Measured scan of single mutants.
Amino acid sequence: TGEEYIAVGDFTAQQVGDLTFKKGEILLVIEKKPDGWWIAKDAKGNEGLVPRTYLEPYS
C-alpha cells in the first residue's frame, strides 16, 4: 500500500530507474526517501523514482 499523489507537472526520466509521468497523473508513493526522490508506481504498474517537488497529495 501507499499514498496517492497527483503530478503537478510533466517529468521525463533523466536516468535508468526514474519514472516518466504527465501532469494530472495519479501516482502511488511507496517509499519517501530523504533525498527528495520518492519511489512511486503509476496506473500501469510501472515503478520508479520521482521528484517529490512534482507531486501533491491527492484526496
Rank of each mutant, 00 (worst) to 15 (best):
T1E: 14
T1I: 11
T1G: 14
T1W: 08
T1K: 12
G2V: 12
G2P: 15
E3N: 10
E3D: 08
E3Q: 13
E4Q: 15
E4L: 15
E4I: 14
E4P: 15
E4Y: 15
Y5V: 03
Y5P: 00
Y5K: 01
Y5D: 00
Y5I: 01
I6F: 06
I6N: 02
I6H: 03
I6C: 05
I6W: 06
A7L: 02
A7W: 01
A7Q: 01
A7N: 00
A7D: 00
A7I: 02
V8I: 15
V8D: 02
V8T: 14
V8Q: 07
V8G: 04
G9N: 14
G9L: 15
G9R: 14
G9W: 15
G9C: 10
G9S: 14
G9F: 15
D10N: 11
D10Q: 05
D10L: 02
D10K: 04
D10S: 12
F11N: 03
F11K: 03
F11Y: 14
T12R: 08
T12Q: 13
A13D: 03
Q14R: 15
Q14V: 13
Q14E: 09
Q14T: 12
Q14W: 11
Q14S: 11
Q15G: 13
Q15E: 10
Q15V: 09
V16A: 13
V16G: 10
V16M: 12
V16K: 15
V16P: 14
G17I: 04
G17N: 06
D18H: 15
D18S: 14
L19Q: 01
L19F: 03
L19I: 06
T20S: 15
T20H: 05
F21E: 00
F21V: 08
F21N: 00
F21T: 02
K22F: 10
K22Y: 10
K22N: 08
K22A: 08
K23Y: 08
K23W: 05
K23N: 05
K23D: 03
G24M: 03
G24Y: 06
G24H: 06
G24S: 04
G24I: 01
E25T: 09
E25M: 10
E25Q: 14
E25W: 13
E25L: 03
E25Y: 05
E25K: 02
E25C: 07
E25A: 14
I26F: 05
I26G: 02
I26Y: 05
I26E: 02
I26Q: 03
L27C: 02
L27F: 06
L27E: 00
L27K: 00
L28V: 11
L28C: 07
L28N: 07
V29N: 00
V29D: 00
V29K: 01
I30Q: 07
I30A: 03
I30N: 03
I30H: 04
E31T: 12
E31D: 12
E31I: 13
E31H: 12
K32N: 03
K32A: 05
K32I: 05
K32T: 05
K33C: 08
K33T: 10
K33S: 09
P34V: 13
P34S: 12
P34G: 13
P34T: 15
P34A: 15
D35G: 10
D35I: 04
G36P: 04
G36A: 05
G36E: 06
G36N: 07
G36H: 06
G36S: 05
G36D: 08
W37F: 10
W37D: 03
W38Q: 01
W38E: 00
W38S: 01
W38K: 00
W38N: 01
I39D: 02
I39S: 06
I39G: 03
A40P: 00
K41Y: 10
D42H: 03
D42C: 03
D42Q: 03
D42S: 07
D42T: 06
D42L: 03
A43G: 12
K44Q: 15
K44G: 10
K44W: 15
K44V: 10
G45F: 04
G45W: 04
G45K: 04
N46Y: 08
N46I: 09
E47M: 12
E47W: 11
E47D: 06
E47C: 14
E47S: 10
G48W: 03
G48F: 03
G48S: 01
L49C: 08
L49H: 09
L49P: 05
L49A: 09
L49W: 11
L49F: 12
V50C: 06
V50A: 09
V50K: 00
P51H: 14
P51K: 08
P51W: 14
P51E: 07
R52N: 15
R52Q: 14
R52E: 12
T53K: 12
T53L: 11
T53W: 14
T53Y: 10
Y54A: 11
Y54L: 15
Y54C: 09
Y54T: 05
Y54E: 06
L55H: 00
E56G: 05
E56I: 15
E56W: 13
E56M: 15
P57L: 12
P57W: 07
P57Y: 08
Y58M: 11
Y58W: 14
Y58V: 09
Y58H: 10
S59D: 12
S59G: 13
S59A: 12
